[in-house]
Design a protein around this nucleic acid. Sequence first.
DNA 1: AGTGGCACCTGTGTGC
DNA 2: TGCACACAGGTGCCAC
Length: 272
Amino acid sequence: MPELPEVEVTKRGIAGVLLNHVITDIFKGEKALREPMSPELVTLKGKSIVSVERRAKYIIIRTDGPALIIHLGMTGHMQIIQSSKPRVLHDHFEIMLDSGMSVRYNDTRRFGLVHFVPEGEDPFESPLLKNLGPEPFDPSLDAAELLRRLSRRSCSVKQAIMDPKVLVGVGNIYASETLFLSRILPERKANSLSEAEAECLLKNIREVLSESIASGGTTIRDFEGADGKPGYFVQKLKVYGHAGEKCPVCGNAIHSIVLGGRSAFFCPVCQH
DNA sequence: AGTGGCACCTGTGTGC
DNA sequence: TGCACACAGGTGCCAC
């Protein structure tokens, strides 16, 4: 689930529950995520939450003491739930609040991350966040700047737009989708794009991501439900996961190839 | 510095 | 039914 829109929707959902509340307890599972969880996480107990932010696909939670950087990996999700409800398989981390509610982190594959940032350190200066490229909605990222960043790359344009050093937030699904909308073949060399193509691509990245955030927003009401699966934007996907089916524009078959170990979906007729 | 390959981990679907 | 295998939304590390 977690591409940028899902992370943004998650951030907005948990922010309402967390902000200005006191952490009464922390649960930390035994198994390591992408890195082992710090024993210092327990020092969050008694602290108040002062902000919940997003950078790339990371969620940053600041308290009046330490901070947290959370990443959902491939299968992570957060659930807003009454603290008294029993935990289930793959619940790895939980913030219990003075309201009787909890934010629980569940991650089947454990590619996610719960990173402790000691009091006094700026989470945005963490190596996890420090060297990230621009946000897709950053006004300073214009077509010329995107083109400049792509022109330094000889890899495929799909791999390039998925590289957080070029820009953040474009995952495997939206890479295929935005390239389809921009009529650019995913295997094109990143440094072969024209300025017009870069402009079109940036416009489509912004449109698709904001549409997904808007449609994902409704799923927040299901957060207390058992699974919390969104599945809304899945219905809007034009090429991703549709190999062999008809292109919604020209009717020819959608193809799939592997680039950098990840599947890419495209229409060989519409895209050049 | 950029690149491709692989590793991390669990679950699900497919084909034999 | 059982089994082997491919594949899945992300990222980091390694050798080149």
